[in-house]
């Protein structure tokens, strides 16, 4: 075999495996973090560290979410992290589309569960790319002309502006806004499925699960993980889609202006403080 063919072969292998890997690290890991963060809009009320007087469950959720967003926005080299993520998603997407085009679904004749998942993996991939692009373009890159109602997302008003973007206006649902919310619902569902199923599939690709029982057991675990993430994804979308803009705005303003008191043992703050201490000391 010629050198050239060898290197072609190695490149093919490397790309294929990097495609598989990139879906898990960093994209999949980011997806988990992102969903956990965003879903605080639904369960952030549990956060007892937000002990602002007069805050109800939803206020605490909004505050928690805002706090998480602020934390992320204050991360050092955020842009680098973002670019890494975008490249990984881009890499995974472009190769994924190329690979997916090489197959030809046949669920019409062979309606086996595995085959349906295979077809869904590809459909959710295509759809997911479209969704992620919309999501990032409208909320991160500020392409407000794509947002019904034209609201621009602001990290200082994370909940309210996102809710407005989902609902189509700052005054609750518009018809188009409802479609956007549905689009989000489908988008996150697709990505969660894509990730969970991809995780199952990757274990075979890498040769981690070989025997049928192993594949089945790992499948159950992936399904469990998928169900958990799906739950987080759904409550996030529902949480923001039903969020009251004015209420969120109020909480966020309070956070900005009066600086809500957080418990001193708050991990994020502690890190920042320690850092300063070191420099000073």
């Amino acid at each position: 075999m010629s050198e050239n063919a060898d290197s072609m072969q190695n490149r093919h292998f490397l790309l294929r495996r990097l495609h598989s890997l990139s879906g898990i690290v960093p994209v999949g890991v980011f997806l988990i973090v992102h969903l956990v963060t965003n879903s605080t809009i639904a369960w952030g009320g549990l956060n007892s560290r937000v002990d602002q007087e007069g805050f109800g469950w939803f206020d605490r959720s909004i505050a928690t979410f805002q706090h998480e967003v602020s934390f992320i926005n204050n991360m050092p080299l955020l842009l680098l992290i973002e670019i890494t993520l975008w490249s990984a998603i881009g890499f995974h997407s472009i190769l994924g589309v190329y690979y997916a085009m090489s197959g030809k679904g046949n669920t019409g004749s062979y309606k086996y569960g595995g085959n349906l998942r295979y077809a869904l993996q590809r459909t959710t991939g295509y759809f997911g790319i479209f969704f992620i692009f919309y999501h990032v373009a409208t909320l991160r890159w500020g392409w407000t002309w794509l947002v019904p109602g034209g609201v621009e997302w602001s990290h200082e008003h994370a909940s309210s502006t996102f809710a407005a973007a989902l609902q189509g206006s700052t005054d609750g649902f518009t018809a188009v806004g409802f479609l956007v919310a549905c689009f989000y619902f489908l988008g996150v569902s697709a990505l969660v499925f894509h990730f969970a199923n991809g995780l199952w599939s990757a274990a075979i690709t890498w040769g981690i699960t070989v025997s049928r029982p192993a594949q089945k057991r790992w499948g159950i675990m992936c399904a469990g993980l998928g169900a958990g993430l799906m739950f987080l994804a759904w409550v996030s979308v529902i949480g923001f889609a039903t969020l009251d803009y004015d209420q969120a705005r109020e909480v966020e303003d309070q956070l900005l202006g009066e600086s809500i008191h957080m418990n001193v043992d708050d991990a994020h703050d502690a890190v920042t403080l320690t850092g300063h201490d070191d420099i000073d000391g």
Binding site: Y110, G114, Y118, T205
Partner: peptide, 11 residues
């Protein structure tokens, strides 16, 4: 066209 092209449809 090798093992990596498998899409695990398992038909």
């Amino acid at each position: 066209g090798g093992i990596n092209d498998c899409g695990n449809a398992q038909n």
